[in-house]
């Protein structure tokens, strides 16, 4: 499970002023649950995902991944975490099998286990014939399959997807979506970020709305509907943004 507690991330800008990319955010995600971090571009989703995957360290506050604190125990956090994003690149000069094996070794998975997992997953994803091909010759859909296997080679309990379908064609995006559902079936804890309302509607058990680094709302689609009196997620989103105090201040300043 994921537990985010009062997370803050400041970026100091060139002129010395501080920009709060994540501002006192708290939420959680349970095992067997799909939670969607929904927000427009620049809302702080990627920063949040990068903190949770230990790429960034938080300015204050912390989070737990599968019970491990990411400040105190970042290496344990990484071991328990699978990370996949829509625009990740791959090492083109490696073969698919080499690529997956490389990451398996970095995670410290024994060689025979890596072999076994590659075999299982490639059957499941119907990609056995891709394994010996060089990645540069693969289509984007094939590459995404390789990335999927890469992200779960160490069998993590928590999966984080950062805009997993951005830039992908429909068929490839469907693969990802079904993979996310599959994770839930196997009782994994899934957190994915998106700016596409429809994707959140379709997949998420719970939606966490983020805007300008702040969490505006947190609940199932149903509960958000009753709270706002809106049915469409787009309208729900606008409702929350308009009612956030922060936004009013900004508007007041602008006029």
């Amino acid at each position: 499970m994921i537990k985010v507690m009062n997370l803050v991330k400041d970026f100091t800008q060139k002129d010395g002023s501080v920009y709060k990319a994540v501002n006192d955010a708290s939420f959680d995600a349970q095992d067997g649950e799909i939670v969607c971090l929904l927000g427009v571009n620049g809302a702080g989703k990627t920063t949040m995902m990068r903190i949770l995957s230990t790429i960034f360290s938080p300015t204050s506050g912390t989070a737990e991944i599968n019970g491990y604190d990411l400040r105190k125990d970042p290496s344990k956090v990484r071991e328990n975490l699978g990370f996949l994003s829509g625009d990740t690149g791959l090492y083109n000069r490696l073969r698919s099998r080499e690529f997956i094996t490389y990451f398996g070794e970095l995670y410290g998975v024994p060689r025979d286990v890596i072999k076994q997992r590659i075999k299982e997953m490639s059957q499941l994803l119907d990609m056995e014939d891709l394994l010996e091909k060089k990645i540069e010759f693969l289509s984007s859909g094939m590459k995404q399959k390789v990335s999927i296997v890469r992200s779960i080679i160490h069998d993590p309990q928590v999966m984080i997807f950062d805009e997993p379908t951005s830039g992908l064609d429909i068929l490839t995006a469907r693969n990802i979506v079904s993979f996310i559902r599959d994770c839930k079936q196997r009782n994994k804890c899934v957190l994915f970020s998106t700016h596409i309302m429809r994707e959140a509607e379709r997949l998420a058990d719970r939606i966490v709305l983020i805007h300008k680094g702040k969490i505006l709302a947190n609940g199932s689609l149903e509960s958000l509907r009753t709270q706002t009196g809106q049915t469409d997620l787009d309208d729900i989103f606008v409702h929350y943004v308009n009612h956030s105090t922060d936004e009013k201040e900004v508007l007041a300043n602008e006029f």
Binding site: T54, S75, E79
Partner: peptide, 17 residues
């Protein structure tokens, strides 16, 4: 090169220091 090809992030989330 890794930054340009967007592979660095994947490497950083691995359990490798």
């Amino acid at each position: 090169g890794e930054k340009e090809r967007k592979t660095l992030e994947t490497l950083l989330v691995c359990s490798v220091h």
